[in-house]
Design a protein around this nucleic acid. Structure first.
Length: 544
RNA sequence: GCCCCGAUAGUUCAAUGGAUAGAACACUAGCCUUCUAAGCUAGAUAUGCAGGUUCGAUUCCUGCUCGGGGCACCA
């Protein structure tokens, strides 16, 4: 039996409407609610006014009709109350079946197949390799990682990808910065212009630069040096980011996609021809323009400058063609910081122009405001004033940091109080959840392995815990569609709360005997907590 | 000027157009002879302003106020 009852209710109502038992009612008005309070019923169906009026006319009949058409074990009764609510009461048979299912599915509990093996590319973080990852990168990084995990758990074929901007102007500035520091290290007197990067990491990079024969003087020699420095600095930065991300942030990437590599094999020429063939470009003022206005953007955009250099948008078009034409993905999910929102219009235009309308979702993560000693601390890579993710994790631990970034809706502004984060790190809600898991493990360690037995619920703390456990599959599917990753920590908290309450009310081990129902409930809770934390990339410790 | 986000308790955040707007932190008072007290129980406080749509609005629409971000032949 599937604990997901919602589809069943939908089916039942559809059937009732189609068979004409109810008057002709528009189906979109029909909606479903989750349990709210015990006295409201375990599952409540919420319908809009038109339907509600019908319900009020003959409530009892409608309730019976739904019950008959639901065809589900464990439905106790159906009540129609207040305008717009149908409460469906389930009995313990229903709950017991759900708990049994959790124990059968083990680590797979929570997964679903709604993705149907669609090929999704999730691109996130993709910070320029011109400086260390800072606090502001946390949202996109952890959020994207969790979206990828949730999509995988929902049966999508997922490629998680970091797009490395190792091409273009920003890397030139990095090269210039490192080169000047390098020259200064060599005792050569060069100035250090305002627009260059200022962080200490530039000095570190400069120390690592290896140049066998430096000959100063003419411009060609300088350019050669700069090219070498650029290559080394960019590679060093990428290596740093890769190591941090995989070893310390627990973020998994399937692909590290180089922007520079998109330009190999005459890509510029070929792509320009490809675009021209389709009438997507025109020339004006000595530049090549992309006809983006025709596809919904507010203006046309340059893709090849007067100088012959390509713009960033051109790279993105290359990248889009790579994704949709060469790798044949079905859908592209992209997490961007809110400071890139101006980019949405042209990206959508480009996707439509190359013939893949509605195959892209950009998720904007609002910026994080860093508070320190009651004041806002402005973060700037250029000024070298930022808190790196690495420092933060060393201070408070990865689980705390991941939880913190995941617990808020990505679309809401967020303050990060550095003092508070450090001071209260032991009070972070993540410990509340982990503690529940550790408590469970400690119980399980004391009990021998026992064969499954029928569940007999004896109090409300057992039942309310079971009800919450049954919701995980629905939740995972919902998050896979809405990308609202903050629902996972919210849910984990609910589970933990229900468990802690259960723990004080219901003993598993009573003297010499073990309560089999409670034991199985505890095992199921452990699986739910572990699987939920796993989706968030957070540890489920056995001891604390 | 135009565009995108946001405004909910002292603070940080939740809440598919529905039921008594939920947590956490902080504060107060209780609870360990029993599976981990990093826990449990009880307690006060909130939808920026003005309209509109609706049986019903924190949610949708309009205007305003305040805050963040963006409007390049930069990335």
């Amino acid at each position: 039996m599937k604990p997901v009852i919602i589809d069943k209710i939908n089916e039942a109502v559809k059937k009732i409407i189609q068979t004409g038992t109810w008057p002709n009612i528009k189906l979109p008005a029909f909606e479903v609610n989750y349990p709210v309070q015990p006295e409201h019923g375990d599952y409540a169906v919420n319908v809009a006014m038109k339907l509600a009026k019908v319900l009020q006319q003959n409530p009892m009949d409608i309730g019976e009709l739904i019950k008959e058409n639901l065809n589900l074990d464990g439905i106790e009764r159906v009540e129609v109350v207040r305008p717009g609510f149908i409460n469906i009461f389930v009995n313990t048979t229903f709950l017991a079946g759900g708990v049994r299912l959790i124990l059968e599915q083990q680590n797979d509990y929570g997964k679903n197949n709604s993705g149907n093996h669609k090929k999704y590319l999730v691109e996130f973080l993709s910070a320029n390799p011109t400086g260390p990852l800072h606090l502001g990168n946390g949202r996109g990084g952890f959020g994207g990682d969790v979206i990828a995990r949730v999509l995988r758990a929902s049966g999508y074929d997922v490629i998680s990808e970091y797009y490395v901007n190792d091409y273009g102007n920003q890397t030139n500035i990095l090269a210039e910065s490192v080169m000047r520091r390098y020259l200064q290290n060599q005792g050569i007197n060069v100035d250090y212009p305002e627009e260059l990067y200022k962080g200490d990491y530039i000095k570190e990079l400069a120390k690592q630069v290896v140049l066998p024969d430096v000959k100063l003087g003419n411009q060609a020699a300088m350019l050669a040096i700069k090219a070498k420095v650029k290559d080394q600095a960019v590679q060093a930065m990428i290596k740093q980011i890769k190591e941090l991300v995989t070893r310390k942030l627990n973020i998994h990437y399937d692909v590290w996609k180089s922007e520079k590599a998109l330009y190999e094999n005459d890509a510029v020429k070929k792509t320009l021809a490809w675009l021209k063939e389709r009438g997507l470009t025109f020339e004006q003022d000595g530049a090549v323009w992309f006809n983006s206005k025709k596809f919904g953007d507010d203006k046309d955009r340059v893709i090849v400058k007067q100088t012959g250099e390509t713009t960033y948008l051109f790279s993105d078009i290359l990248y889009l063609i790579d994704k949709f034409e060469q790798r044949k993905i079905d859908y592209w999910v992209c997490l961007l910081g809110a400071d890139h929102h101006g980019y949405q219009g042209r990206m959508e235009a480009a996707v439509v122009a190359i013939g893949h309308r509605n195959k892209m979702q950009i998720i904007f993560t609002q910026l994080v405001r860093l508070m320190f000693n009651g004041k806002e601390l402005r973060m700037s890579k250029r000024q070298g004033t930022f808190v790196t993710l690495e420092e933060l994790i060393e201070d408070v631990g990865l689980d705390v940091v991941r939880w913190f970034f995941l617990m808020h809706d990505t679309n809401t502004h967020m303050d990060f109080d550095l003092n508070l984060a450090k001071e209260h790190s032991d009070k972070n809600p993540v410990y509340y959840v982990q503690y529940a898991h550790a408590r469970i493990c400690s119980i399980l360690a004391k009990v021998p392995k026992l064969a499954p037995a029928p569940l007999q619920f004896t109090n409300s703390s057992e039942e309310s815990l079971a009800k919450i456990l049954l919701r995980l599959p629905e939740l995972v599917e919902e998050v896979s569609k809405t990308y609202q990753v903050h629902k996972l920590p919210q849910y984990a908290l609910e589970v933990a709360r229900a468990f802690h309450y259960f723990y004080t009310k219901s003993r598993v081990i009573e003297g010499e005997t073990v309560n089999r129902t409670r034991l199985q409930l505890v095992q199921a809770t452990q699986l739910v907590l572990k699987n939920t934390l796993q989706l968030m990339g957070i540890n489920a410790p056995e001891k604390m």
